[in-house]
């Protein structure tokens, strides 16, 4: 009389070993990094005191500074984010079309578009801003273009994926009527990706509002310039006002976007 005694295991030996290998590598990397990173312990012990000092300098906030400089800079920041998001579309839509396998069925095109999308995403918006500041000089243009170039990768990738998920039935129906390539794009694909398109663009706009608030630190316009100036002059009460303004705008932008997206979906 044999009872059932086989041992149940969730993972195979190979799965287990490869998982443990990942853990091991992580632990090793962590230990190695902690040992070799240059951290001055005195600074860490000092941190709470310094933090307290900073916040005591921030309070009370210099609200009188808001109408003088912060308000206009905040509007400029919003404009940079919005204009940047719109300009992105000029580049991102063609790249998304090239990246979608059901529209352009060519490996070469896909590689080209993927190259542009990945390099756009890999370079941080602050680095893009540095590049454009050295091209166009300090100012709003650099900020707008930095936002635009950083967003290409994000919008292009997500939009390309949305296009690939389109229901091909209506596309085939349009093809059967002899519609031109452009008409198929406009009347077949576009209505189907419309909600995804607006949702992606709004999502990116939300991120861009956050990002455009810091571009001024490298001279690309917006609230960051005010922040940088006040910080260089150690006017922490003005820094606090600028930070509060950024906080409020970011929260408002998120609320707006979440509500619109809820309606779209």
């Amino acid at each position: 009389m044999n009872t059932i005694d086989h041992h149940w295991e969730r993972f195979t030996l190979k799965q287990k070993l490869s998982r443990y290998a990942v853990y091991l590598v992580l632990v090793m990397a962590f230990v190695q990094s902690v040992q070799s990173v240059e951290v001055i312990p005195e600074f860490l012990l000092d941190a709470p005191e310094q933090m307290g000092d900073m916040f005591s300098r921030m309070w009370p906030m210099d609200f009188a500074y808001y109408p003088v400089a912060v308000h206009d800079a905040m509007i400029e920041t919003l404009n940079i984010a919005t204009l940047g998001t719109l300009i992105t579309l000029i580049f991102a839509i063609p790249l998304a079309l090239m990246n979608a396998r059901n529209i352009v069925d060519s490996a070469l095109c896909q590689w080209i578009s993927r190259f542009f999308l990945v390099s756009s995403r890999s370079v941080n918006s602050l680095v893009w801003a540095l590049l454009f500041v050295s091209i166009f000089g300090p100012g709003v243009i650099a900020g707008v273009l930095a936002i635009a170039f950083r967003s290409i990768g994000f919008i292009g990738k997500l939009l390309g994926e949305a296009i690939e998920e389109v229901n091909m039935g209506s596309i085939e129906a349009l093809k059967a009527t002899g519609a031109s390539w452009f008409s198929i794009l406009l009347k077949g694909y576009w209505p189907q990706v419309l909600p995804a398109f607006f949702s992606i663009v709004l999502f990116r706009w939300d991120i861009n509002v956050r990002e455009s608030a810091v571009l001024g630190l490298v001279g690309a316009g917006g609230i960051g310039v005010v922040l940088d100036d006040s910080m260089n002059l150690f006017q922490w009460d003005r820094v606090a006002v600028a930070l509060l303004a950024i906080f409020v705008i970011v929260i408002l932008a998120e609320i707006v976007v979440v509500n619109i997206r809820k309606r779209l979906m």
């Binding site: 990173v37 240059e38 951290v39 001055i40 600074f43 860490l44 000092d46 310094q50 900073m54």
Partner: peptide, 11 residues
């Protein structure tokens, strides 16, 4: 500002 320049602030 609170922990000084260097990797610790980044971490």
């Amino acid at each position: 500002k609170s922990v000084g320049f260097g990797a610790l602030a980044g971490i």
